[in-house]
Design a protein around this nucleic acid. Structure first.
Length: 417
RNA sequence: GUGGGUGUAGCUCAGGUGGUAGAGCACUUGGUUGUGGCCCAAGUGGUCGCGUGUUCAAGUCACGUCACCCACCCCA
């Protein structure tokens, strides 16, 4: 029989890696709670049209990166490639806006993109998402970034950098796009790389993001986005920058920061790490004021970010194995019963530990206890049973003493505090 | 979708010019009729990714195929 193997780009996560996820999630929940956010759980499967309409039919994500398939009745479904579309859909469908002006929502879970896997990129990956719906105030942008910053710092990330840009709005961006197109069409085609020649027609803004030196030289002479921002966008961007400044958040303006989802406007940002390979963005997001309306909802604004857990954990490295408080080594059949009952009592008091039921020698049981890094081994032999005691061996000092079973709890050394 | 790299024990890897497999770690047991970590000894464990070909003989050579990794692209 052939073994069934997992599919490309998916992974099985065992402890201690799985513990790292839990810990990171817990930190996010704690910070987000303090910022007044509420958790929203949305489906991971949606109608394909939702993503096509929100992310944009011409984007790479929709064109070639989605897990899309027909259901049993022939309707096209897609495993979500990002969270915002589903959150927006849920917000509209449940008319959340009718009972409150502002909604602060977060959601944590798996996303799916059909890409070639590499370091920091798998086909199923875990994201932490936060969205603020219903406010155009630049203070909202700043607050969201402050929260992201606070979460990342709390989780222990030091060397990350924040890049910021404004993409303008439907009033001013068309002028800029036209200027870019005009500029590119006036350039010598030979000066651009083949990709950029294609981009200059399909998605001119992307040319600004090209890493080829000759393209960079060319685009340096091109129109600058910030000079095309309308008054409102300029003020908005200015305020966001000022608020970040007075809050002590370090950031860098990156006028070439173009994001791959069509719904973004005005504020966009990415958080980058230098230490995790080519896929360096650990978080990213921006404002999407037109999205809800485009999805058939009310004309309300929104802003949000997504945080890639695998990429963050790449920086954090391996978590230590969890330790336990006790390991019970019974030396007879009867002792296994007593051991089971004692373990149950200790666990009821909040301690963690195992009982060995395999009937192995004391020597191998102690080896096992040591391997598990248990703080103490409780030996239950014939002599102990007749006296209703246990032999308590402290595994770090090696000292042991015989104590009464009812005194166990107070006598145990603790592995963790 | 396009490149490049790697597939040998549970893990990390050795195996000049072809002669059907090794180390370290891990695991099990023993060295102590009931005592871990260090040490010592023995033991378990391999269709050498898979297939075809060349050959008396293939882990080693050729072709194909699959998987994984890294990068491009794109993004969390």
């Amino acid at each position: 029989m052939d073994k069934i193997k997992k599919i490309k780009g998916f992974s099985d996560v065992f402890s201690p890696r799985s513990d790292s996820y839990t810990l990171l999630e817990a930190k996010a929940r704690d910070i987000f709670f303090r910022y007044g956010f509420e958790e929203l759980r949305v489906p991971i499967l949606e109608k394909t049209e939702l993503f096509a309409r929100s992310i944009g039919t011409e984007t790479d994500i929709v064109q070639k990166e989605m897990f899309t398939f027909p259901d049993r009745k022939g309707r096209s479904l897609t495993l979500r490639p990002e969270a915002t579309a589903g959150v927006a859909r849920a917000y509209i469908e449940n008319k959340i806006y009718s009972s409150r002006d502002i909604s602060k929502l977060y959601t944590i879970g798996p996303m799916f993109r059909y890409e070639r896997p590499q370091k920091g990129r798998q086909r199923q990956f875990q994201q932490i998402n936060a969205e603020i719906l219903g406010s155009t105030a630049p203070e909202t942008d700043a607050e969201l970034l402050l929260m992201l910053n606070s979460f990342l710092r709390d989780a222990g990330f030091q060397k990350l950098s924040l890049e910021l840009n404004s993409l303008g709005c439907p009033q001013c961006r068309p002028d800029f796009l036209k200027a870019v197109s005009d500029f590119l069409s006036r350039q010598d085609e030979e000066a651009l790389c083949p990709d950029c020649r294609r981009r200059s027609r399909s998605n001119p803004l992307r040319v600004y993001d090209c890493k080829i030196n000759t393209c960079r030289e060319q685009i340096k002479k091109g129109p600058v986005l910030t000079e095309y921002l309308c008054g409102d966008c300029r003020d908005h961007f200015q305020t966001v920058k000022r608020l970040l400044g007075i809050s002590g958040v370090q950031y860098r303006i990156n006028p070439n920061l173009v994001r791959g989802l069509d719904y973004y406007q005005r504020t966009t940002f990415e958080v980058l790490s230098e230490d995790i390979g080519a896929q360096s963005a650990v978080a990213g997001g921006g404002r999407y004021d037109g999205l809800l309306k485009d999805l058939g909802g009310p004309d309300l604004p929104g802003i949000g970010f997504a945080c890639g857990m695998e990429r963050l954990l790449l920086i954090l490295g391996e978590a230590p194995n969890p330790q336990s408080d006790f390991f019970i080594a019974p030396l007879s059949q009867k002792a296994k019963e007593i051991g089971l009952l004692l373990a149950c009592q200790l666990r009821a008091k909040g301690l963690r530990g195992d009982v060995a039921f395999e009937g192995k020698s004391l020597k191998s049981q102690l080896r096992q206890a040591n391997k598990q890094q248990a703080a103490a081994c409780l030996i239950l032999g014939e002599e102990e049973l007749t006296r209703s005691t246990v032999l308590l061996k402290d595994l770090s000092s090696g000292e042991q003493s015989e104590i009464r079973q009812e005194d166990l709890l107070t006598a145990l050394p603790l592995s963790r505090q």
